[in-house]
Write a protein that binds this DNA or RNA. Structure first.
Length: 821
RNA sequence: GGGCGAGUGGCGAAGUCGGUAGACGCGGCAGCCCUAGGAGCUGUUGCUCGUAAGAGCGUGAGGGUUCGAGUCCCUCCUCGCCCACCA
């Protein structure tokens, strides 16, 4: 650093480009950001989501990481040994597609991007402990994906099955349900189609009930609700009705309304239901096959659209509603989904909107069996007939036209009917979830190879642990067309069976990248250990994660998978806690001109020009000052001058000569205390924007003051600002004679005694309208306040000629004189 | 259609155990300073009327509760997110 001043009285200019790289280099060389696993301070694990190495640290990253870094620094200054690691979620289809576009190897593309982003993180001034960097595309990491897969397989938590799955025709791979957004591929927004394929699944549904519980977790309500909706637990019964004339055939269905079973006047199967082929009568065969073929060709979006008219075809077969004794027709219709429940329903048109619409469409009978009228269906009486229903009644009520159950309340009837079904052996109470098992296999190259071998003699053979990792070969061809590049690589595919030693074929699918990120928080603790996925001794010092910050867009996908993997590893005996993350907060999404930023739209905004012009500290401060962090915002750099000016002022203050004595300024002393309180509380609550505003106010107050109180205010400001703007505060701390790094200092304490106001503004109202403002001493009695208000000429004028009915006094705040008209 | 959240100046936003609406910042206006910088400083800036003092009106719309409502209750509108033919 050159000494910029040359004898003149002019203050040296604030030049971020000079001080920021200097401190970044110094922090790196002194290991300021290296966190020991053990120290004299309590450990605190502050995790923030690692990025995809997509190329550039853009404004979305700044919006996520600058505030997270600030919050982590704050906790460190409050006396904790804070672990704040970073890494890269380095596998994934993006790298593969980008590599195809540029004729580059995905590994090279990824390495290049990681190098660039690492550098940008350093220039942001983030307190990252780079010794602990986790990179998921390295064999040292992904071998543990494979190890976990084998453990899951052993336990029955991983399995291979043929199922109708989501297929993205553009990316040429299957997708998990969680990766299909409005019927489109999460990555490329192509319409997803259903295909029957044999794939690998993780049994997340085993944990559905436990995943619904958030006991003891400090998670946003919003995320909990989203996960609960996604899991979609429904209680009801599974019951079967026999198919007429077919000895062993029965249609098994799930219903949440067993109480309406007497109103089931027809049944509906999904077009893909296995019974369709066997029960369809010869007369209906052609129509049914045409309908099934048509359903197969429809997009998922069309099929699941609630708006379009219901369609369906009779199978010609009939079932027996064993409760009502009625013979009811069996239809097929695409509004019944093969993947939910049993893929078949009993249709109760009087009490279900969809069944109602379908019955209207095809003239099927509608039988009311629930009455909203509490007096209806008294035992022995039949419901009175009334005109045709205009819509389904889906509420609870009293069972009518339901044989022995007439007069029963629906909530009771639900249980009674389910119990009766169980007694007669045709059903049982049952719970169904919307959540499907996690489809983890992908037909892509850039991912973790699934460690199994297919042998003609031994079938599916897991690769023995001792042979891990199954290394992803480098020499694959990327065409982007026609299946996984691994499948075309004989050197990879052809192997020998670990059991019998005869020639066998390797699995060529790779794992979903969400598998990689589902456990990365354990790997940061020791990235080198090669005997286990985690260093347990170190883990005991840090886990579970104390705090996690991540974008709200991950509320379901990643955050649900993390919880599942944690619970599965716990049940395998590898983890000792039930939940991986104690405290979660989500930043909102940053958009540009109202639209989400994405590479495919080409509207990704990079703040580099602002970093170059104003410095990282200004950009950090600006993204925090923009608005409430949890709400997100529209990116508009127009206001960045404001935060730049603020730092210029802080700089000027920081370099100004000490007062050398004089009287204290009680008001400024109070302002300092109030600011400490405000910034502390705001950082605890992630209110970065108002914390910055408070510091701006203090800087203005200090600017106009003098004497020792001003010196103290500047000292406090440097400390309070340190987590927000680490470079300028480090420089000022040093120049003002501070010892060590400002980032190793203790957060200033708040003294309520000093903060207390001595004078307050009392608002004098008449009938709720402000008529005067009185500057009075704090703590006056109610009577004194009342007298002071009544003595105000403005108040007197307002109440002239009126009778004072009463006077309301709020201590230190207001007096309201209420008059009669 | 269901659930959750939100509507406040020209703009980003503060304020929600009911008690001074618009903190802080951008932008605007007026001025100061300096041989001039992409610098700094001061004042002003919700709307309407008024030269002014001042008055009236103002937090999506409409009702309600209250001495007092941006804040609580009811009805409605708009936007965002999540789920959505899930039986």
């Amino acid at each position: 650093m050159t000494s910029g001043t040359s004898g003149t009285s002019k203050t040296e200019r604030y030049t971020p480009s000079a001080i920021e790289p200097k401190w970044q280099a110094q922090w790196a060389s002194t290991g300021l950001h290296d966190t020991p696993d053990e120290s004299d301070r309590p450990n605190f694990y502050f995790l923030t989501a690692f990025p995809y190495p997509s190329g550039d640290v853009h404004v979305g990253h700044w919006y996520a990481y600058a505030p997270a870094d600030c919050a982590a620094r704050f906790i460190r200054m409050r006396g904790r040994n804070v672990l704040f690691p970073m890494g890269f979620d380095a596998f994934g289809i993006n790298a593969e597609n980008a590599a195809i576009d540029r004729n580059m190897h995905p590994a090279a593309w990824t390495e290049q991007n990681m190098a660039q982003m690492r550098d940008q993180f350093v220039r942001m001034g983030a307190m990252i402990d780079w010794r602990r960097e986790v990179i998921t595309c390295y064999p040292e990491y992904y071998r543990w994906n494979q190890w976990m897969f084998l453990k899951f397989l052993e336990k029955g938590l991983a399995y291979r099955a043929t199922a109708p799955v989501n297929w993205c025709p553009r990316d040429e791979t299957v997708l998990a349900n969680e990766q299909v957004i409005n019927g489109r591929c999460e990555r490329c927004e192509t319409l997803v189609v259903k295909k029957d394929l044999t794939q690998w699944f993780y049994k997340i549904t085993d944990y559905a009930d436990e995943l619904l519980r958030f006991d003891g977790l400090d998670w946003p309500e919003r995320v909990r609700v989203m996960q609960q909706n996604w899991i979609g637990r429904s209680e009801g019964a599974e019951i079967q009705f026999p198919v007429e004339g077919q000895r062993d055939a029965a249609v098994r269905f799930f219903t949440t309304r067993p109480d309406t079973i007497y109103g089931a006047t027809f049944m509906v199967l999904a077009p893909e239901h296995p019974l369709v082929a066997t029960i369809t009568t010869p007369a209906q065969k052609v129509a049914v096959e045409a309908y099934v073929a048509n359903a197969k060709n429809e997009s998922e979006i069309d099929r699941t659209s609630a708006e379009r008219p219901k369609t369906g075809v009779e199978t010609g077969a009939f079932a027996m509603n064993v409760f009502s004794g009625q013979r009811i027709p069996i239809w097929i219709a695409d509004y019944v989904l093969a993947t939910y429940g049993t893929g078949a329903i009993m249709a109760v048109p009087a009490h279900d909107e969809r069944d109602f619409a379908f019955a209207k469409q095809y003239g099927l009978p509608i039988k009311e069996v629930i009455s909203a009228d509490a007096g209806a269906g008294a035992p022995g009486s039949e419901a009175t007939e009334h005109g045709p229903l205009e819509s389904a009644f889906t509420g609870d009520g009293i069972m009518v036209r339901s044989g022995p159950y007439n007069g029963t309340r629906s909530d009771v009837g639900k249980r009674t009917i389910a119990a009766e079904a169980k007694k007669t052996g045709i059903g049982k109470p049952s719970v169904t979830y919307r959540l499907r098992d996690w489809l983890v296999s992908r037909q892509r190259y850039w991912g973790t190879p699934i460690p199994v071998v297919y042998c003609d003699a031994d079938g599916i053979v897991p690769v023995p642990e001792s042979q891990l990792p199954v290394v992803l070969p480098r020499d694959a061809q990327f065409t982007g067309r026609g299946g996984s590049p691994l499948a075309k690589l004989p050197s990879f595919v052809d192997t020998t069976c670990p059991t019998c030693g005869k020639p066998a074929k390797r699995e060529t699918d790779t794992m979903d990248t969400f598998v990689d990120s589902s456990w990365y928080m354990y790997r940061y603790l020791d990235t080198k250990i090669d005997t286990h996925f985690m260093n347990v001794d170190v883990g005991k010092r840090w886990l579970p994660v104390d705090r996690y910050t991540i974008g709200i867009e991950h509320a379901i996908l990643h955050l649900l998978y993390c919880r599942f993997v944690c619970k599965a590893l716990r049940d395998l005996g590898y983890l000792w806690f039930d939940e991986p993350i104690r405290h979660l907060r989500n930043q909102g999404t940053i958009v540009f001109k109202g639209r989400k930023m994405s590479k495919s739209r080409g509207n990704v905004q990079a703040p580099d020009e602002y970093v170059a012009r104003y410095g990282a500290d200004t950009v950090r401060l600006f993204v925090m000052f923009m608005g409430p962090w949890t709400e997100g915002n529209d990116w508009d750099a127009a206001g960045i001058e404001g935060t730049a000016r603020f730092l210029h002022r802080v700089w000027t203050l920081g370099l100004s000569a000490p007062s050398g004595g004089g009287a204290r300024d009680a008001e400024l002393d109070r302002a300092v205390q109030r600011t400490i309180k405000k910034v502390t509380e705001d950082l605890e609550g992630y209110h970065f924007n108002t914390a910055v505003a408070a510091m701006m106010e203090l800087s203005t107050a200090a600017f106009h003051a003098s004497g020792p109180s001003r010196d103290a205010a500047i000292d406090a400001l440097v400390l309070l600002l340190a987590p927000f703007a680490p470079h300028i505060t480090e420089e000022l701390w040093q120049r003002r004679g501070g010892q060590g790094s400002v980032h190793r200092q203790t957060w200033p304490a708040f003294d309520p005694a000093v903060a207390r106001d001595v004078a307050v503004t009392i608002v004098a109202q008449v009938n709720g309208k402000v008529r005067d403002r009185l500057e009075l001493a704090a703590g006056l009695s109610e009577d004194a306040l009342k007298q002071a208000a009544l003595a105000s000429p403005k108040v007197a004028q307002a109440i002239a000629g009126l009778r004072v009915e009463r006077v309301i006094v709020v201590a230190d705040r207001l007096v309201n004189v209420v008059t009669t008209s």
